[in-house]
């Protein structure tokens, strides 16, 4: 396989665009996990946010409204999860899975109720590419990186800001402490419960934004399977990225590339049944996860409810 085949510029360009939902979702999940919250409802949240964003834009005619609705949906559901986990100390995975089912069902239910019976399926305008003034004219790189739609730049900014927040601010330090050693953090005056709640709101908003990105950047419509496993992939990307925003974003690019490459491969290799090529990204994800698990250090208190009165 020649290098040209693998580094086809149009393929890389596509991968950058497709990486946006993955990067945003993994950034949001990462923020929550760093505070100690494991949110496995993420696939459902992405779906619900996609539906909400679509319906918001459809009803108001504005993509901005749609994006806000999507982010709000993500924040709300994650905050609910946090309440179950933090205030009521329920098992996070159980509640997460239940919310996953609820969100998926709610998404298609709301879509049906708002859209109703129509002769043509509703569409919203997708975001147009926004070439950056000077960078967009650079050869090769300009086309791949700087002639993308607005959410690509937004995602890059979010990843950078999140990195700065987590590792270079005191609030970020307190948040990480809440996830590593809530007992010790609590004794020093860190508001573990409050930080987890805020992490859920902010992280959930990012996940919601990821969901909103799907209708606005890919197809202009909402379909039930629009998330396509991206929520689960984002969970994996957090581990792959060793719970750092830059690592997760790199993983997002890698995965999006494999996803895009699958279609190119489909055009070239006729002998392989198409379904096996479709398995490729998912099998790849398992292999990456297994590889990434070695030496991966999750936040110590991830997934465990913090009970002030517990002895252990």
């Amino acid at each position: 396989m020649s290098w040209e085949l693998l580094l086809d510029p149009s393929l890389v360009r596509l991968a950058v665009s497709m990486a946006v939902p993955l990067a945003l979702a993994s950034a949001g999940e990462l923020l929550m996990e760093r505070a100690g919250l494991l949110n496995v409802a993420i696939e459902g949240i992405v779906t619900l946010a996609a539906a909400g964003a679509f319906l918001g834009a459809f009803a108001s005619g504005s993509a901005g409204v749609g994006l806000v609705v999507g982010a709000a949906a993500g924040a709300a559901v994650s905050r609910l999860l946090a309440h179950y986990a933090v205030a009521w100390r329920r098992d996070q995975v159980t509640v997460g899975l239940t919310l996953y089912v609820l969100c998926v069902g709610l998404a298609s239910l709301l879509y049906r109720m708002v859209v109703g019976v129509r002769l043509t399926p509703p569409r919203v305008e997708t975001l147009p590419p926004v070439p950056l003034p000077w960078l967009g004219d650079l050869p090769l790189v300009g086309d791949i990186l700087f002639r993308q739609h607005a959410l690509v730049y937004a995602a890059a900014a979010v990843v950078g800001a999140l990195h700065g927040f987590l590792f270079h601010t005191s609030l970020g330090l307190r948040l990480r402490a809440a996830g590593e050693n809530p007992v010790a953090a609590d004794t020093v005056g860190v508001d573990v419960f409050g930080l987890r709640a805020w992490a859920a709101l902010a992280g959930g908003a990012l996940v919601g934004l990821a969901g909103a990105a799907l209708p606005f950047t890919l197809t202009g419509t909402f379909t039930e399977g629009i998330a396509g496993g991206r929520g689960w992939i984002a969970l994996m990307l957090v581990i792959f990225g060793r719970w750092t925003p830059l690592g997760a974003a790199a993983g997002a690019l890698l995965f999006a590339y494999v996803e895009a490459f699958q279609f190119k491969l489909a055009l070239l290799s006729k002998a392989v049944p198409p379904q096996f090529l479709q398995m490729l990204p998912y099998a790849f994800a398992i292999l990456v996860l297994v590889r990434a698990y070695r030496g991966a250090e999750a936040p110590e208190a991830l997934g465990k409810p913090y009970d002030r009165e517990a002895r252990t």
Binding site: G225, A260, A266, L267
Partner: peptide, 25 residues
Amino acid sequence: VLYTFVGDQNDPVKARQAAESQIAA
């Protein structure tokens, strides 16, 4: 004739990706 079976009749995302690959070719 270049053809792709994307695996789902109703998945616009996969359909878009397949079409983009074909257009790029």
